[in-house]
Design a binder for these strands. Sequence first.
DNA 1: TAAAATTTTTACCAATTGGTAAAGTGACGA
DNA 2: TCGTCACTTTACCAATTGGTAAAAATTTTA
Lengths: 207, 207
Amino acid sequence: MTDLSEKKPSRIQTRNRRLILDAALDVFSRDGYGGATLDAIASGAGLSKPNLLYYFDSKKEIYVTLLSQLLETWLDPLVELDPDGDPVEELLGYVRLKLDMALELPAESRLFAGEMLQGAPRLAEYLKDDLKPLFDTKCKAIQDWIDAGRLAHVDPAHLIFTIWSTTQHYADFGAQVSVLLENSDPAQRAHKHLEQLFRRLLQPVNH
Amino acid sequence: MTDLSEKKPSRIQTRNRRLILDAALDVFSRDGYGGATLDAIASGAGLSKPNLLYYFDSKKEIYVTLLSQLLETWLDPLVELDPDGDPVEELLGYVRLKLDMALELPAESRLFAGEMLQGAPRLAEYLKDDLKPLFDTKCKAIQDWIDAGRLAHVDPAHLIFTIWSTTQHYADFGAQVSVLLENSDPAQRAHKHLEQLFRRLLQPVNH
DNA sequence: TAAAATTTTTACCAATTGGTAAAGTGACGA
DNA sequence: TCGTCACTTTACCAATTGGTAAAAATTTTA
């Protein structure tokens, strides 16, 4: 018997855990936690179910592993927001990054959204301990920009909500978006639209 | 044996179908279609599972009934958008209505969002046959406003996406919002923020 | 009030679920 | 070549799932 949670993983372990997590992302993001089955994940990974359970102790462990790996990359762009940079350009850069993430990692976005829809039962402590402090810090930075007259008067918290919602919409509601847009290149139009939107919102009024 | 799908329903039928749909909305919106169980719905409605299946033939039928009832009210505000009204005020009114719906009917919003996350398998024909024509009509109306110089140059389709995403965010990501905002009255601030956002975006530039 | 129709309960069931035990396979170093 | 360790398969299992059959209770109707 081996304890997979300790020591450096073998080549096989690295490969199979990767296969499992990739398949699990597909299944969980499509069917939700409750709708996902180990059989579907195992089959997606090309492994037998007991073999899958050799690498992860339970369904929940796979899900939680997936979520916590996601959260690292998810927070990153907000961390990068630089209080010493140009306010409008910093925020537009953040919008651009978030939109690119939504377009390139839609499954990740949907996994996160699905967890939120369920009331974030497995993310409660993450929200309070990690996201909240970061959120407050960035809200304050934005408020400082406003106070310095370098940014239009906006509610910092709701500005961030607006950035999150408008960008993630292209992943989470992708099914709707693709039906309604048909032809026109969604990615480029979305980029142009959001740039315009936030530029108009954020540009301080000269006086 | 009775055919519940025909003739006018009895008082008991009306009451119990209502109880079931109310409970089902709770369960489906929280756990998703796959995660929801008939036992949970039955218990929520205060009925036994076989009794519940006397009123609906299957789990899927409950879900579909719920969805299609929702869609009627969901589309309504967009239908109301009046091409003969004042452009900015019409659109701001639409935003206000959508935000109120999200705040007052969060479970409905989450049910819809959950279906979207799964790729809208049960809404494919609704999206194409009902939503798409309406969407196109309204996009054209917005474009006409722009061409008449009564509205800033915006991408109509993406404007609608932005309205949908920013408003529904307060329902779909409510778990996150409530953790991050703590005290401050979210509803009122959201209203003020979105009014400001869309006013700045939509107000045509004088020239 | 008796019969007819509707509603509810009891007792099931086959399929699927997450998960386990243990035997088997394969690679690698002593 | 043998034993050890990591990995995989086979054969399960108890619990839960969506759903059914039919009897029992209740309500409605004639």
